[in-house]
Amino acid sequence: MENVTQAMQGVPLNHYILLSAIVFAIGVMGVLIRRNAIIIFMSVELMLNAVNLLLTAFSVHHNDASGQVFVFFIMALAAAEVAVGLAIIVMIYRNTHSTDIDVLNKLKW
């Protein structure tokens, strides 16, 4: 474990920000291009994870443990969000027999 973390000393902070930005953008794209509600939920999870990684990298960079505690709270929030969201999807499926979000366009008018 010591050797692994010693090897990480050289990665610039920019590259962590870049990785998180790319994964976040992929999550946004997933929300935009898919119609299945479950895949949209997975994309939201990807975005949350990108933010988590960035918070951890900044926490290590600034030598402050608060960032990692925030990540812990985000994980609790993600678990709650997934439980309620999947329950809503189950209810939508029971009423419309699909998880296609384009079926639910009545709020548009």
């Binding site: 010591e2 973390t5 990665v11 962590y16 926490s59 030598n63």
Partner: peptide, 14 residues
């Protein structure tokens, strides 16, 4: 223009 390397200052942070 931040390109400081991420350095672990205290080993028991996480």
């Amino acid at each position: 223009h931040i390109s400081d390397p991420v350095i672990l200052q205290t080993q028991d942070l996480g």
